[in-house]
């Protein structure tokens, strides 16, 4: 269960990587920082509302309200960050038809800059956002104990992913995303505003990262300026695992990675946990470079 829960957070962040990669063929390194900013924003918004670690939250209504507010704030902040990075850093490069290497280096630059600015601003201290929900065992299936936070995390994550999946597959804008992912130039000829679609992709990816950030706060109650790095790495592994550019692949990859990691840490000891995901990624890349469900946002369902 812990694995599924962690996997759900990975999967949400992985969606952002997958969306951007599917459309732009770019690994958005700054995405981990988008997530990190989400964690800080939800924390600050709660703090600004007068909620800190010592506040006792009794009523269910207040709890739900706090989570919804955190969700909206986190998603909004993350989306704004993602869009800013796109407009400031990537768009000028696209206009100049820069090689992929230049994009990648820019992405790293953006990631470093965001992480360090927050790092300097927060004096590199770790923060503990308030515990909105006290973890408690809700019910048990045999030997597996399911806590209330786990239910929340899984529920919200699955809900968001289902919504995103429907959006991309059903709506008019979703069709635009798939078109640009398949062939940007032809899509442009067909009257699709490429830049607007790319912007939309960053908004969606950022919002997903924001939701993941809220869930992270609820679950772990810990954040730091470099919290995004490891999550980003894992989420990217998850995206590759499921087939980068494929939304359902990201979900599968995330959940799988979470489970395998926790299983491995039980098997070999905690110090190997972060190793497992990485080894899994390398092995998978050797045998099935396009991931479990295959690549491409457009082609997979074309």
């Amino acid at each position: 269960m812990t694995g599924l829960e962690q996997g759900a957070i990975y999967a949400l962040v992985a969606l952002g990587y997958t969306l951007v990669y599917g459309v732009l063929r770019l690994i958005n390194f700054a995405h981990s920082e988008v997530f990190m900013i989400g964690t800080f924003t939800t924390m600050w918004v709660w703090g600004w509302m007068g909620i800190d670690q010592n506040t006792k939250i009794d009523s269910v209504g207040q709890m739900v309200m706090l989570i919804v507010i955190g969700l909206v704030a986190g998603a909004a902040a993350s989306a704004v960050t993602a869009v800013t990075v796109e407009v400031v850093a990537y768009r000028p490069l696209r206009r100049r038809n820069a090689p992929p290497l230049a994009f990648l280096i820019t992405a790293i630059g953006a990631s470093l800059f965001l992480a360090e600015m927050i790092g300097i601003f927060t004096k590199r201290a770790p923060f503990g956002p308030p515990r909105i929900i006290e973890p408690a065992v809700a019910f048990a299936i045999g030997p597996f104990k399911v806590t209330n936070t786990q239910i929340l995390v899984l529920l919200v994550a699955l809900l968001m992913m289902a919504a995103l999946d429907q959006f991309v597959n059903r709506s008019r804008m979703g069709k635009g995303i798939r078109a640009v992912a398949q062939d940007p130039d032809t899509a442009a000829l067909m009257g699709i505003n490429k830049n607007r679609i790319i912007l939309l992709v960053f908004v969606l990816g950022g919002a997903m990262a924001g939701v993941a950030a809220l869930l992270w706060n609820v679950r772990y109650g810990f954040t730091k300026f470099n919290v995004g790095f490891l999550i980003g790495l894992k989420a990217f592994s998850a995206a590759v695992l499921g087939g980068i550019g494929n939304l359902r692949g990201a979900l599968l990859g995330g959940l799988l990675l979470g489970v395998v990691e926790n299983y491995a840490s039980g098997l070999f000891g905690g110090e190997w946990k972060d190793f497992t995901g990485f080894v899994l990624l390398v092995i998978l890349l050797m045998f099935r470079p396009t991931g479990l469900l295959g690549e491409s946002l457009g082609r997979a369902r074309a």
Binding site: T106, I108, G109, L112, I120
Partner: peptide, 20 residues
């Protein structure tokens, strides 16, 4: 040294745009 990495992150972005 505190600002070094942030500054170089910015430098990477700006360099890639104006003088790759």
């Amino acid at each position: 040294a505190e600002y070094r990495i942030a500054v170089f992150g910015l430098v990477l972005i700006v360099m890639m745009i104006f003088r790759p």
